[in-house]
Amino acid sequence: MLSIKNLHVSIEGKDILKGINLDVKPGEVHAIMGPNGAGKSTLASVLAGRDLYNVTEGEVIFQGKDLLDMEPEDRAKEGIFLGFQYPIEIPGVSTVNFMKTAVNEHRKYKGLDPLSASDFLKLMREKKALVEIDSKLTNRSVNEGFSGGEKKKNEIFQMAMLEPKLAVLDETDSGLDIDALRVVANGVNKLKTRDNATIVITHYQRLLDYIVPDVVHVLYNGRIVKTAGKELALELEEKGYDWIKEENGK
């Protein structure tokens, strides 16, 4: 589904990613862990098409298409969803209107007619129930005045609405209390199918108690330095990142 080969990325002349290789297959959950500044969020942003970054080398193929050649909105419509570490507030734009616009853009891309108002509201109700998000949140402006937890729940709600093929969740667990964490994780688990895949980017092992990964990668200093099963997350939790840093020369 996703194949990253030798990806090098820099920002303002500074190399952040220095040769990432990653393969994600349908149905898989990958966790990318690593200390602060390792390049985790950069990787997420580059996949989503943020233009702050320069890709200097390498390729990213998503479902047989050259991802790096696509506009961010087309990547989204091809099925890439980024759960933002810091979701953005859009004052005055209701979540309903925002999601309706987004859903219909996705439909248009697939050659489908836009949803009628009633079908759309029905879809919203279903997805709200699925991810256990409060109706009050979706009636408000996008993320405006939301708490950290509410913003993250809203990301999962949007993911449910858009049904991506590949969801990249960037530090979705940061700043969440245990209840919010559970809601978010449940949402992700319920949305999982044999055909879609998830990349969970996290600093802590905590989230991985709820979202069980098939593969865990450790990203350090712009490279994936370790790849193993879910037990790697526990090892990191126990030992911290220092041994990784030592193994890879500080």
């Binding site: 506009e71 909105e73 989204a76 859009i90 004052p91 005055g92 987004a102 949007q158």
Partner: peptide, 27 residues
């Protein structure tokens, strides 16, 4: 950031600006 957020949900930049500006002017 706001524009990219909209882009990431599948909304192109022109439409994103329309959405954001209309939200701002809604009152």
């Amino acid at each position: 950031d706001q524009i990219f957020y909209c882009n990431q949900r599948g909304i192109n930049t022109e439409d994103a600006i329309g959405l954001i500006v209309n939200g701002y002017a809604k009152e």
